[in-house]
Design a protein around this nucleic acid. Sequence first.
RNA 1: GGCCCCAUGGUGUAACCGGCUAACACGCAGCCCUCUCAAGGCUGAGAGCGGGGGUUCGAGUCCCCCUGGGGCUACCA
Length: 474
Amino acid sequence: MTVRVRFAPSPTGYLHVGGARTALFNWLFARRHGGTFILRIEDTDLERSTAESEEGLLRDLRWLGLTWDEGPGIGGPHAPYRQSERTKIYQEWARRLVETGAAYPCFCTEDELEKKRQQAEAEHRSLHYDGTCRRLTAEEAKRRVAAGEPHCIRVRVPVKDYAVDDLVRGRVEWKSETLGDFIILRSNGMPVYNFCVVVDDADMEITHVIRAEEHLTNTHRQLILYEALGKPIPQFAHVSLILGADKTKLSKRHGATSVGQYETDGFLPQAMVNFLALLGWAEGIDKELYSIAELIEKFSLERINPAPAVFDHTKLIWMNGQHIRLLPVDKLAEMIAPAMRDAYPGDARMEDGGFLRKLAATVQPALTVIPDVVNVAKPLLHAGEPADDEAKAALAAPEVPALLAALAGEFKGCDWQRDPINAAIKAAGKKAGVKGKGLFMPLRVKLTGSCHGPDLINVLDLLGRDEVVRRLGV
RNA sequence: GGCCCCAUGGUGUAACCGGCUAACACGCAGCCCUCUCAAGGCUGAGAGCGGGGGUUCGAGUCCCCCUGGGGCUACCA
Protein backbone atom coordinates (compact mmCIF):
# COMPACT_ATOMS: atom_id res chain seq x y z
CA MET A 1 0.00 0.00 0.00
CA THR A 2 1.46 3.30 -0.97
CA VAL A 3 1.50 5.98 1.69
CA ARG A 4 -0.75 8.99 1.25
CA VAL A 5 -0.72 11.72 3.89
CA ARG A 6 -2.04 15.22 4.06
CA PHE A 7 -1.54 18.51 5.82
CA ALA A 8 -4.86 20.31 6.14
CA PRO A 9 -4.53 23.81 7.55
CA SER A 10 -7.25 26.41 7.92
CA PRO A 11 -6.29 29.66 6.23
CA THR A 12 -7.28 31.77 9.21
CA GLY A 13 -3.84 33.13 9.99
CA TYR A 14 -0.20 32.52 9.20
CA LEU A 15 1.53 29.19 9.48
CA HIS A 16 2.64 28.82 13.08
CA VAL A 17 5.36 26.54 14.34
CA GLY A 18 2.93 23.91 15.59
CA GLY A 19 1.31 23.62 12.21
CA ALA A 20 4.70 23.64 10.56
CA ARG A 21 5.81 20.70 12.65
CA THR A 22 2.66 18.77 11.80
CA ALA A 23 3.28 19.50 8.13
CA LEU A 24 6.90 18.47 8.51
CA PHE A 25 6.07 15.14 10.13
CA ASN A 26 3.62 14.38 7.35
CA TRP A 27 6.11 15.40 4.71
CA LEU A 28 8.96 13.42 6.25
CA PHE A 29 6.76 10.36 6.53
CA ALA A 30 5.70 10.65 2.90
CA ARG A 31 9.25 11.15 1.68
CA ARG A 32 10.54 8.36 3.88
CA HIS A 33 8.12 5.89 2.33
CA GLY A 34 8.06 7.21 -1.20
CA GLY A 35 4.47 8.29 -0.61
CA THR A 36 2.37 11.26 -1.56
CA PHE A 37 2.11 14.46 0.47
CA ILE A 38 -1.17 16.27 -0.09
CA LEU A 39 -2.02 19.81 0.87
CA ARG A 40 -5.68 20.49 1.51
CA ILE A 41 -7.12 23.85 2.51
CA GLU A 42 -9.82 23.61 5.15
CA ASP A 43 -11.70 26.82 4.56
CA THR A 44 -15.24 25.80 5.40
CA ASP A 45 -15.30 28.62 7.91
CA LEU A 46 -15.78 31.33 5.33
CA GLU A 47 -15.92 34.02 7.98
CA ARG A 48 -12.38 33.49 9.16
CA SER A 49 -10.68 32.17 6.05
CA THR A 50 -8.83 34.60 3.83
CA ALA A 51 -6.99 34.35 0.55
CA GLU A 52 -4.01 36.19 2.05
CA SER A 53 -3.69 33.61 4.78
CA GLU A 54 -3.76 30.83 2.25
CA GLU A 55 -1.04 32.50 0.19
CA GLY A 56 1.03 33.00 3.32
CA LEU A 57 0.60 29.36 4.23
CA LEU A 58 1.77 28.16 0.84
CA ARG A 59 4.69 30.56 0.87
CA ASP A 60 5.86 29.45 4.30
CA LEU A 61 5.59 25.77 3.40
CA ARG A 62 7.65 26.37 0.28
CA TRP A 63 10.23 28.28 2.27
CA LEU A 64 10.60 25.30 4.61
CA GLY A 65 10.93 23.10 1.58
CA LEU A 66 7.79 21.12 2.33
CA THR A 67 6.62 20.77 -1.23
CA TRP A 68 3.33 19.02 -1.86
CA ASP A 69 2.51 16.50 -4.55
CA GLU A 70 -1.19 17.24 -4.77
CA GLY A 71 -2.97 20.40 -3.75
CA PRO A 72 -3.50 24.06 -4.56
CA GLY A 73 -1.50 25.24 -7.52
CA ILE A 74 -0.73 21.71 -8.60
CA GLY A 75 -4.01 19.89 -8.74
CA GLY A 76 -4.18 16.13 -8.66
CA PRO A 77 -6.53 13.20 -9.13
CA HIS A 78 -8.77 14.28 -6.25
CA ALA A 79 -9.10 17.97 -7.06
CA PRO A 80 -10.29 20.37 -5.91
CA TYR A 81 -8.18 20.56 -2.75
CA ARG A 82 -9.96 23.50 -1.21
CA GLN A 83 -12.94 22.51 0.90
CA SER A 84 -14.93 25.56 -0.06
CA GLU A 85 -14.92 24.17 -3.58
CA ARG A 86 -16.09 20.75 -2.50
CA THR A 87 -19.43 21.65 -0.96
CA LYS A 88 -21.37 19.63 -3.50
CA ILE A 89 -19.40 16.50 -2.64
CA TYR A 90 -20.24 16.79 1.05
CA GLN A 91 -23.89 17.50 0.34
CA GLU A 92 -24.12 14.51 -1.93
CA TRP A 93 -22.62 12.25 0.73
CA ALA A 94 -24.94 13.66 3.35
CA ARG A 95 -27.89 12.96 1.08
CA ARG A 96 -26.77 9.37 0.67
CA LEU A 97 -26.39 8.93 4.41
CA VAL A 98 -29.93 10.17 4.94
CA GLU A 99 -31.08 7.78 2.27
CA THR A 100 -29.47 4.80 3.98
CA GLY A 101 -30.74 5.93 7.36
CA ALA A 102 -27.25 6.54 8.75
CA ALA A 103 -28.22 10.19 9.10
CA TYR A 104 -31.47 12.10 9.48
CA PRO A 105 -32.86 15.59 9.19
CA CYS A 106 -33.28 17.45 12.46
CA PHE A 107 -35.82 20.27 12.79
CA CYS A 108 -34.93 21.44 16.26
CA THR A 109 -34.11 25.13 16.37
CA GLU A 110 -30.98 26.51 17.98
CA ASP A 111 -33.08 28.18 20.66
CA GLU A 112 -34.73 24.92 21.60
CA LEU A 113 -31.38 23.18 21.75
CA GLU A 114 -29.86 25.87 23.89
CA LYS A 115 -32.72 25.58 26.35
CA LYS A 116 -32.34 21.83 26.54
CA ARG A 117 -28.62 22.16 27.08
CA GLN A 118 -29.09 24.54 29.95
CA GLN A 119 -31.67 22.32 31.53
CA ALA A 120 -29.44 19.29 31.15
CA GLU A 121 -26.59 21.17 32.75
CA ALA A 122 -28.75 22.18 35.68
CA GLU A 123 -29.85 18.60 36.18
CA HIS A 124 -26.30 17.31 35.73
CA ARG A 125 -27.29 15.19 32.77
CA SER A 126 -25.14 14.74 29.69
CA LEU A 127 -25.27 17.67 27.33
CA HIS A 128 -25.81 15.62 24.21
CA TYR A 129 -28.56 16.03 21.70
CA ASP A 130 -31.59 14.24 23.10
CA GLY A 131 -32.57 12.58 19.81
CA THR A 132 -35.96 14.24 19.38
CA CYS A 133 -35.87 14.13 15.59
CA ARG A 134 -34.13 10.78 15.48
CA ARG A 135 -37.48 9.28 16.41
CA LEU A 136 -39.34 10.88 13.53
CA THR A 137 -40.53 8.42 10.91
CA ALA A 138 -38.84 8.61 7.53
CA GLU A 139 -42.13 9.65 5.98
CA GLU A 140 -42.74 12.49 8.36
CA ALA A 141 -39.17 13.71 8.02
CA LYS A 142 -39.47 13.63 4.26
CA ARG A 143 -42.76 15.52 4.39
CA ARG A 144 -41.38 18.29 6.59
CA VAL A 145 -38.28 18.64 4.43
CA ALA A 146 -40.49 18.86 1.34
CA ALA A 147 -42.56 21.51 3.10
CA GLY A 148 -39.42 23.59 3.31
CA GLU A 149 -39.01 23.40 7.05
CA PRO A 150 -35.46 24.46 8.08
CA HIS A 151 -33.36 21.55 9.18
CA CYS A 152 -29.83 20.32 9.63
CA ILE A 153 -28.56 16.78 9.14
CA ARG A 154 -27.37 14.65 12.03
CA VAL A 155 -25.68 11.26 12.03
CA ARG A 156 -27.33 8.45 13.89
CA VAL A 157 -24.60 7.51 16.36
CA PRO A 158 -24.61 3.74 16.92
CA VAL A 159 -24.69 2.39 20.45
CA LYS A 160 -21.30 0.75 20.49
CA ASP A 161 -17.74 1.29 21.65
CA TYR A 162 -15.04 2.62 19.37
CA ALA A 163 -11.28 2.34 19.52
CA VAL A 164 -8.31 3.33 17.49
CA ASP A 165 -4.71 2.13 17.62
CA ASP A 166 -2.94 5.42 17.47
CA LEU A 167 0.61 5.20 16.16
CA VAL A 168 1.96 7.53 18.82
CA ARG A 169 -0.46 6.97 21.69
CA GLY A 170 -1.36 3.34 21.45
CA ARG A 171 -4.91 2.16 21.88
CA VAL A 172 -7.49 4.83 22.66
CA GLU A 173 -11.06 3.83 23.45
CA TRP A 174 -14.42 5.53 23.68
CA LYS A 175 -17.41 4.03 25.37
CA SER A 176 -20.80 4.11 23.74
CA GLU A 177 -23.25 6.81 24.79
CA THR A 178 -20.48 9.34 25.32
CA LEU A 179 -21.54 11.11 22.18
CA GLY A 180 -24.89 12.35 20.95
CA ASP A 181 -26.08 12.44 17.35
CA PHE A 182 -23.98 15.25 15.94
CA ILE A 183 -24.53 17.57 13.03
CA ILE A 184 -22.83 16.98 9.70
CA LEU A 185 -24.73 19.52 7.60
CA ARG A 186 -25.83 22.87 8.96
CA SER A 187 -29.31 24.15 8.27
CA ASN A 188 -27.82 26.45 5.65
CA GLY A 189 -26.62 23.36 3.81
CA MET A 190 -22.95 23.85 4.66
CA PRO A 191 -21.01 20.86 5.98
CA VAL A 192 -19.29 20.78 9.33
CA TYR A 193 -15.58 20.22 9.91
CA ASN A 194 -15.62 16.64 11.14
CA PHE A 195 -17.71 15.58 8.19
CA CYS A 196 -15.54 17.32 5.60
CA VAL A 197 -12.41 15.80 7.02
CA VAL A 198 -13.70 12.28 6.80
CA VAL A 199 -15.25 12.67 3.35
CA ASP A 200 -12.02 14.19 2.07
CA ASP A 201 -9.63 11.81 3.76
CA ALA A 202 -11.67 8.91 2.43
CA ASP A 203 -12.00 10.39 -1.03
CA MET A 204 -8.32 11.30 -1.21
CA GLU A 205 -7.42 7.82 -0.01
CA ILE A 206 -5.37 9.06 2.91
CA THR A 207 -3.59 6.14 4.57
CA HIS A 208 -2.13 7.91 7.60
CA VAL A 209 -3.71 10.84 9.38
CA ILE A 210 -0.89 12.66 11.19
CA ARG A 211 -2.26 15.66 13.04
CA ALA A 212 -2.24 17.59 16.30
CA GLU A 213 -3.47 16.06 19.53
CA GLU A 214 -6.37 18.48 19.76
CA HIS A 215 -8.02 16.28 17.15
CA LEU A 216 -7.69 13.07 19.12
CA THR A 217 -11.21 13.17 20.50
CA ASN A 218 -12.56 14.17 17.11
CA THR A 219 -11.41 10.76 15.98
CA HIS A 220 -14.34 9.23 17.84
CA ARG A 221 -16.82 11.09 15.63
CA GLN A 222 -14.74 10.43 12.59
CA LEU A 223 -14.67 6.69 13.16
CA ILE A 224 -18.45 6.75 13.23
CA LEU A 225 -18.47 8.67 9.98
CA TYR A 226 -16.05 6.32 8.22
CA GLU A 227 -18.33 3.50 9.21
CA ALA A 228 -21.43 5.31 7.98
CA LEU A 229 -19.70 6.10 4.72
CA GLY A 230 -18.52 2.53 4.35
CA LYS A 231 -14.94 3.66 3.88
CA PRO A 232 -11.73 2.07 5.17
CA ILE A 233 -10.29 3.62 8.31
CA PRO A 234 -6.80 5.09 7.98
CA GLN A 235 -4.04 4.84 10.57
CA PHE A 236 -3.91 7.73 13.01
CA ALA A 237 -0.97 9.45 14.66
CA HIS A 238 -1.74 12.27 17.06
CA VAL A 239 1.19 14.54 17.74
CA SER A 240 1.32 16.52 20.97
CA LEU A 241 0.95 20.25 21.25
CA ILE A 242 3.82 22.72 21.33
CA LEU A 243 3.90 24.87 24.45
CA GLY A 244 5.47 28.19 25.38
CA ALA A 245 8.03 28.66 28.14
CA ASP A 246 5.22 28.89 30.71
CA LYS A 247 3.89 25.51 29.57
CA THR A 248 0.70 26.86 28.12
CA LYS A 249 -0.19 26.41 24.48
CA LEU A 250 2.20 28.42 22.32
CA SER A 251 0.70 31.71 21.24
CA LYS A 252 1.64 35.22 20.19
CA ARG A 253 2.34 36.13 23.79
CA HIS A 254 5.40 33.90 23.68
CA GLY A 255 7.08 35.92 20.92
CA ALA A 256 7.47 34.87 17.34
CA THR A 257 5.36 31.85 16.55
CA SER A 258 4.81 32.28 12.85
CA VAL A 259 7.16 30.63 10.43
CA GLY A 260 7.19 33.77 8.29
CA GLN A 261 8.53 35.75 11.23
CA TYR A 262 11.45 33.37 11.58
CA GLU A 263 12.22 33.79 7.93
CA THR A 264 12.35 37.55 8.19
CA ASP A 265 14.37 37.28 11.39
CA GLY A 266 17.07 35.53 9.40
CA PHE A 267 16.67 31.91 10.38
CA LEU A 268 17.61 29.20 7.92
CA PRO A 269 14.85 26.88 6.76
CA GLN A 270 17.06 23.84 7.30
CA ALA A 271 17.68 24.93 10.89
CA MET A 272 13.98 25.46 11.43
CA VAL A 273 13.21 22.03 10.02
CA ASN A 274 15.94 20.41 12.10
CA PHE A 275 14.68 22.09 15.26
CA LEU A 276 11.02 21.33 14.63
CA ALA A 277 11.78 17.70 13.83
CA LEU A 278 13.45 17.31 17.22
CA LEU A 279 10.48 18.77 19.03
CA GLY A 280 8.83 15.53 19.96
CA TRP A 281 10.85 13.20 17.83
CA ALA A 282 14.24 11.63 18.40
CA GLU A 283 16.11 8.90 16.66
CA GLY A 284 17.32 7.52 19.96
CA ILE A 285 20.99 8.26 19.52
CA ASP A 286 23.09 11.25 20.57
CA LYS A 287 22.66 13.23 17.41
CA GLU A 288 20.97 16.57 17.00
CA LEU A 289 22.23 18.16 13.85
CA TYR A 290 20.42 16.69 10.90
CA SER A 291 20.27 17.52 7.24
CA ILE A 292 16.90 17.20 5.56
CA ALA A 293 18.09 14.07 3.78
CA GLU A 294 19.08 12.47 7.09
CA LEU A 295 15.71 13.32 8.61
CA ILE A 296 13.93 11.69 5.71
CA GLU A 297 16.05 8.62 6.10
CA LYS A 298 15.58 8.28 9.86
CA PHE A 299 12.07 9.56 10.53
CA SER A 300 9.48 7.23 11.98
CA LEU A 301 6.10 7.80 13.60
CA GLU A 302 6.79 5.21 16.28
CA ARG A 303 9.49 7.37 17.79
CA ILE A 304 7.31 10.40 18.27
CA ASN A 305 7.05 11.41 21.92
CA PRO A 306 3.43 11.68 23.11
CA ALA A 307 4.19 14.38 25.69
CA PRO A 308 3.81 18.06 24.82
CA ALA A 309 7.04 19.95 24.09
CA VAL A 310 8.12 23.41 25.13
CA PHE A 311 9.41 25.56 22.30
CA ASP A 312 12.90 26.61 23.40
CA HIS A 313 13.80 29.69 21.43
CA THR A 314 17.34 29.72 22.81
CA LYS A 315 18.07 26.31 21.44
CA LEU A 316 16.66 27.29 18.07
CA ILE A 317 19.11 30.17 17.98
CA TRP A 318 21.98 27.83 18.78
CA MET A 319 20.87 25.42 16.12
CA ASN A 320 20.61 28.17 13.55
CA GLY A 321 24.18 29.15 14.33
CA GLN A 322 25.22 25.57 13.78
CA HIS A 323 23.58 25.48 10.39
CA ILE A 324 25.13 28.80 9.44
CA ARG A 325 28.54 27.33 10.27
CA LEU A 326 27.72 24.35 8.07
CA LEU A 327 27.01 26.56 5.08
CA PRO A 328 29.54 26.73 2.24
CA VAL A 329 31.11 30.20 2.29
CA ASP A 330 29.76 31.03 -1.17
CA LYS A 331 26.27 30.23 -0.06
CA LEU A 332 26.62 32.33 3.07
CA ALA A 333 28.02 35.21 0.99
CA GLU A 334 24.90 35.03 -1.12
CA MET A 335 22.69 35.05 1.95
CA ILE A 336 24.28 38.02 3.68
CA ALA A 337 24.31 40.14 0.54
CA PRO A 338 20.74 41.48 0.78
CA ALA A 339 21.15 42.55 4.41
CA MET A 340 24.47 44.23 3.64
CA ARG A 341 23.17 46.05 0.57
CA ASP A 342 20.28 47.20 2.66
CA ALA A 343 22.56 48.53 5.38
CA TYR A 344 25.06 50.11 2.97
CA PRO A 345 23.12 51.36 -0.02
CA GLY A 346 25.37 52.39 -2.86
CA ASP A 347 28.50 50.84 -1.38
CA ALA A 348 30.31 49.26 -4.32
CA ARG A 349 31.88 46.56 -2.15
CA MET A 350 28.47 45.00 -1.62
CA GLU A 351 28.42 44.15 -5.30
CA ASP A 352 31.88 42.63 -5.16
CA GLY A 353 31.61 38.85 -4.91
CA GLY A 354 35.17 38.51 -3.67
CA PHE A 355 34.58 41.00 -0.89
CA LEU A 356 31.31 39.41 0.18
CA ARG A 357 32.95 36.03 0.22
CA LYS A 358 35.73 37.27 2.51
CA LEU A 359 33.19 39.00 4.70
CA ALA A 360 31.15 35.80 4.92
CA ALA A 361 34.21 33.78 5.93
CA THR A 362 35.07 36.39 8.55
CA VAL A 363 31.67 36.58 10.19
CA GLN A 364 30.64 32.95 9.83
CA PRO A 365 31.66 31.86 13.34
CA ALA A 366 29.97 34.87 14.92
CA LEU A 367 26.51 34.69 13.42
CA THR A 368 23.43 33.23 15.02
CA VAL A 369 20.98 34.72 12.55
CA ILE A 370 21.76 36.23 9.16
CA PRO A 371 20.96 39.90 9.95
CA ASP A 372 23.64 39.80 12.68
CA VAL A 373 26.08 40.28 9.87
CA VAL A 374 25.34 43.99 9.78
CA ASN A 375 26.40 44.51 13.37
CA VAL A 376 29.42 42.26 13.17
CA ALA A 377 30.57 43.90 9.96
CA LYS A 378 29.94 47.47 11.07
CA PRO A 379 33.35 48.20 12.64
CA LEU A 380 35.06 46.50 9.73
CA LEU A 381 33.49 48.64 7.09
CA HIS A 382 34.23 52.10 8.32
CA ALA A 383 37.00 53.24 10.60
CA GLY A 384 35.74 54.75 13.82
CA GLU A 385 37.14 56.44 16.87
CA PRO A 386 37.87 54.14 19.81
CA ALA A 387 34.45 53.05 20.97
CA ASP A 388 35.07 52.91 24.72
CA ASP A 389 37.62 53.41 27.48
CA GLU A 390 39.03 49.96 26.95
CA ALA A 391 39.74 50.81 23.34
CA LYS A 392 41.20 54.21 24.22
CA ALA A 393 43.48 52.59 26.76
CA ALA A 394 44.84 50.25 24.12
CA LEU A 395 46.09 53.27 22.18
CA ALA A 396 47.49 55.07 25.20
CA ALA A 397 50.68 53.03 25.55
CA PRO A 398 53.87 54.99 24.78
CA GLU A 399 55.01 52.50 22.11
CA VAL A 400 51.87 52.93 20.04
CA PRO A 401 52.96 55.72 17.67
CA ALA A 402 56.16 53.88 16.81
CA LEU A 403 54.27 50.63 16.41
CA LEU A 404 51.72 52.12 14.03
CA ALA A 405 54.45 53.64 11.94
CA ALA A 406 56.31 50.33 11.82
CA LEU A 407 53.13 48.46 10.87
CA ALA A 408 52.41 50.88 8.07
CA GLY A 409 55.93 50.51 6.80
CA GLU A 410 55.89 46.71 6.90
CA PHE A 411 52.46 46.51 5.29
CA LYS A 412 53.47 48.72 2.42
CA GLY A 413 56.31 46.43 1.57
CA CYS A 414 54.72 43.02 2.02
CA ASP A 415 52.83 40.70 -0.23
CA TRP A 416 49.13 41.04 0.73
CA GLN A 417 48.55 37.41 1.62
CA ARG A 418 47.81 35.96 5.03
CA ASP A 419 51.26 34.59 5.79
CA PRO A 420 53.26 37.63 4.74
CA ILE A 421 50.80 39.87 6.56
CA ASN A 422 51.30 37.88 9.73
CA ALA A 423 55.06 38.10 9.28
CA ALA A 424 54.79 41.85 8.76
CA ILE A 425 52.86 42.26 12.00
CA LYS A 426 55.49 40.28 13.88
CA ALA A 427 58.28 42.28 12.34
CA ALA A 428 56.64 45.57 13.24
CA GLY A 429 56.11 44.37 16.76
CA LYS A 430 59.75 43.52 17.08
CA LYS A 431 60.76 46.94 15.85
CA ALA A 432 58.49 48.68 18.34
CA GLY A 433 59.39 46.28 21.12
CA VAL A 434 55.87 44.95 21.74
CA LYS A 435 54.13 41.63 21.30
CA GLY A 436 50.91 39.83 22.19
CA LYS A 437 48.16 42.17 23.31
CA GLY A 438 50.49 45.14 23.20
CA LEU A 439 50.99 44.47 19.53
CA PHE A 440 47.56 43.36 18.37
CA MET A 441 45.29 45.59 20.41
CA PRO A 442 46.49 48.94 19.09
CA LEU A 443 46.25 47.56 15.57
CA ARG A 444 42.78 46.19 16.21
CA VAL A 445 41.49 49.38 17.76
CA LYS A 446 43.03 51.51 15.04
CA LEU A 447 41.33 49.38 12.39
CA THR A 448 37.96 48.72 14.02
CA GLY A 449 37.60 51.10 16.92
CA SER A 450 37.03 48.22 19.32
CA CYS A 451 38.97 45.67 21.35
CA HIS A 452 36.64 42.90 20.22
CA GLY A 453 35.85 41.43 16.86
CA PRO A 454 36.73 38.75 14.36
CA ASP A 455 40.23 37.40 13.83
CA LEU A 456 42.48 40.28 12.84
CA ILE A 457 44.04 38.49 9.94
CA ASN A 458 40.60 38.19 8.39
CA VAL A 459 39.97 41.86 8.98
CA LEU A 460 43.24 42.81 7.27
CA ASP A 461 42.55 40.53 4.37
CA LEU A 462 39.05 41.90 4.02
CA LEU A 463 39.98 45.59 4.19
CA GLY A 464 42.88 45.42 1.78
CA ARG A 465 46.25 47.06 2.06
CA ASP A 466 45.25 50.59 1.09
CA GLU A 467 42.41 50.80 3.55
CA VAL A 468 44.50 49.30 6.34
CA VAL A 469 47.33 51.75 5.84
CA ARG A 470 44.87 54.60 5.61
CA ARG A 471 43.27 53.61 8.93
CA LEU A 472 46.65 53.40 10.62
CA GLY A 473 46.73 57.13 10.01
CA VAL A 474 50.49 57.59 9.75
C1' G B 1 -19.36 18.18 35.17
C1' G B 2 -18.42 14.06 31.35
C1' C B 3 -14.93 11.82 27.87
C1' C B 4 -9.86 11.55 26.25
C1' C B 5 -4.45 12.50 26.25
C1' C B 6 0.10 13.56 28.90
C1' A B 7 3.98 13.49 33.17
C1' U B 8 12.63 11.95 33.22
C1' G B 9 17.31 18.12 35.42
C1' G B 10 15.25 25.12 33.77
C1' U B 11 14.42 23.32 28.31
C1' G B 12 14.53 19.37 24.18
C1' U B 13 15.33 14.34 24.44
C1' A B 14 17.80 9.07 25.60
C1' A B 15 17.71 4.88 28.61
C1' C B 16 16.16 -2.11 23.53
C1' C B 17 10.49 -6.48 25.17
C1' G B 18 12.34 -4.29 33.77
C1' G B 19 19.15 -4.85 35.65
C1' C B 20 22.16 2.70 36.16
C1' U B 21 26.98 5.47 39.09
C1' A B 22 19.94 7.85 34.95
C1' A B 23 23.01 9.51 29.18
C1' C B 24 23.32 13.49 25.26
C1' A B 25 22.22 18.54 23.65
C1' C B 26 20.66 23.78 24.77
C1' G B 27 21.28 27.08 28.76
C1' C B 28 24.49 28.10 33.20
C1' A B 29 29.64 28.13 35.79
C1' G B 30 34.85 27.34 35.26
C1' C B 31 39.18 26.10 32.46
C1' C B 32 41.92 25.63 27.69
C1' C B 33 42.93 27.70 22.84
C1' U B 34 43.65 32.87 21.32
C1' C B 35 45.33 39.69 20.00
C1' U B 36 39.83 40.14 21.73
C1' C B 37 34.63 38.62 21.13
C1' A B 38 32.68 34.57 19.07
C1' A B 39 33.42 29.67 17.30
C1' G B 40 35.87 25.20 19.04
C1' G B 41 37.77 21.78 23.03
C1' C B 42 37.54 20.15 28.18
C1' U B 43 35.45 20.03 33.16
C1' G B 44 31.48 20.96 36.53
C1' A B 45 26.77 22.12 38.95
C1' G B 46 21.86 20.51 37.90
C1' A B 47 16.77 15.13 37.77
C1' G B 48 16.88 9.64 41.37
C1' C B 49 12.62 9.81 37.03
C1' G B 50 4.95 14.38 39.67
C1' G B 51 3.03 11.74 44.56
C1' G B 52 1.35 7.15 46.88
C1' G B 53 0.53 2.15 46.71
C1' G B 54 1.37 -2.56 44.48
C1' U B 55 3.78 -6.74 41.05
C1' U B 56 9.05 -8.43 41.04
C1' C B 57 15.26 -10.88 43.38
C1' G B 58 15.16 -6.10 40.88
C1' A B 59 10.74 -0.53 38.22
C1' G B 60 11.91 5.73 35.22
C1' U B 61 10.39 1.26 32.48
C1' C B 62 4.37 -3.13 34.20
C1' C B 63 -0.62 -2.41 37.20
C1' C B 64 -3.88 0.72 40.38
C1' C B 65 -5.13 5.30 42.78
C1' C B 66 -4.18 10.43 43.42
C1' U B 67 -2.26 15.14 41.87
C1' G B 68 -0.98 18.46 38.18
C1' G B 69 -1.09 20.09 33.03
C1' G B 70 -3.70 19.88 28.34
C1' G B 71 -7.55 18.72 24.63
C1' C B 72 -12.64 17.77 23.23
C1' U B 73 -17.55 18.33 24.90
C1' A B 74 -20.63 24.21 18.89
C1' C B 75 -25.30 24.47 13.23
C1' C B 76 -15.71 26.72 14.98
C1' A B 77 -11.62 24.40 12.61
